[in-house]
Amino acid sequence: MFSKSKINDPGPKASDSTSSSAPATPAAPTPSDFKSTAPKAKPPASVLSSDLHVTGNLKTTGDIQVEGTVEGDIRAHLLTVGETATIKGEISADDVVINGRIVGRVRGLKVRLTSTARVEGDIIHKTIAIESGAHFEGSVQRQDDPLSAGPKAAPAAKPADA
């Protein structure tokens, strides 16, 4: 009733003429062959809840949503500052959305201050949007590359001793 499949045979036999005339087919790909072909899904934003107080710097290539208090610098791709959040330090991100309080410098390609934002510090941006009702004390400066920390002086070359 059932017959043994030729796939499981150890190899072609000399007497088996049908298998020698059939073209060879490549083995089926294993899941390990597909390591980097499928694009990875973007991970969700890291959320710092309203009851969290962080002292120190945060750095990520991903997204951060702050609802609590951070005393330190933050570097991220997208930073969302919640209405209950307070950040004391420098912010540097591609996109910055401020709903809460910032005390320090803000650097971003796109910076948005919503109506509940309270910013005390300078903003260095490529594009900016400030909604009516936002509180802002500081200066605003447009730069094509606001994420660079400014022109750094190259160390003077020391002459080689002869």
Rank of each mutant, 00 (worst) to 15 (best):
R105C: 14
A149P: 00
L113M: 01
A153S: 06
K110V: 10
R118D: 14
K158A: 14
H135K: 12
A160D: 08
A117F: 07
Q143A: 14
G138D: 02
G108W: 08
D144G: 02
G138R: 03
G133T: 02
A153H: 04
G133F: 03
I123K: 10
P159C: 00
D144E: 08
A160T: 09
K158F: 11
S148Q: 07
F136Q: 12
A149E: 03
A157G: 06
G108Q: 10
S139Q: 11
P155F: 05
T127F: 03
E137T: 13
I123H: 09
K158D: 10
V103G: 15
E137R: 12
D145S: 07
D122R: 08
I102A: 10
S115Q: 07
Q141C: 04
F136P: 12
G138H: 03
R142N: 15
I123W: 09
D161W: 15
K152V: 15
G108H: 06
K126C: 04
P146W: 12
G133Y: 07
Q141D: 07
V111N: 01
G150T: 02
T116Q: 07
S148T: 10
L147S: 00
K110Y: 10
P146G: 12
K158L: 14
P159L: 03
R107L: 01
Q141W: 03
A157M: 06
K110H: 13
S115C: 00
H135P: 00
L109T: 05
S115W: 01
S139V: 10
Q143P: 11
H125A: 13
K126T: 07
A117W: 06
P151E: 05
I128E: 07
K126R: 13
G133D: 04
G138P: 06
S115V: 02
G133Q: 04
L109R: 09
D161I: 15
H125V: 12
V119E: 08
V119C: 10
